[in-house]
């Protein structure tokens, strides 16, 4: 199987995963992922279209919660681990780009 893992792909994955990878990390990960992916790609050998995917090991359905208030945190609890807070809110530095 031709390798799909390139340094550019790893760098792009780092952007998607919000991890600032150094050049050294990119290079190392490219080599390691290449070996790993070669080994795990074999799942597609047996995963034929007629087989259903299992996303939950034990099949359940319709697990619901009654619409009743509970589990509230106090504002102090909400903020208790905040790296930075102001006005009862979490403070973060400038956001690049636009609102979603």
């Amino acid at each position: 199987m031709v390798s799909e893992i390139t340094p550019d792909l790893v760098r792009h994955l780092g952007v998607l995963a919000r991890i600032q990878l150094s050049d050294e990390e990119v290079e190392r990960l490219t080599g390691q992922l290449d070996v790993i992916v070669d080994n795990i790609a074999k799942v597609s050998e047996v995963a034929t279209p007629d087989i259903a995917a299992t996303s939950h090991p034990i099949a359940l359905q319709n697990v619901f919660r009654p619409d009743e208030v509970g589990d509230l945190l106090t504002p102090a609890q909400v903020l208790q681990n905040a790296p930075e807070a102001a006005d009862g809110r979490f403070r973060v530095t400038a956001i690049l780009g636009e609102e979603q």
């Binding site: 795990i40 799942v43 995963a47 087989i51 259903a52 299992t54």
Partner: peptide, 13 residues
């Protein structure tokens, strides 16, 4: 499909 989807099918198997 090739990776995550296939892996979930292996679980079925």
């Amino acid at each position: 499909d090739a990776y995550y989807g296939s892996a979930q099918k292996v679980r079925t198997l």
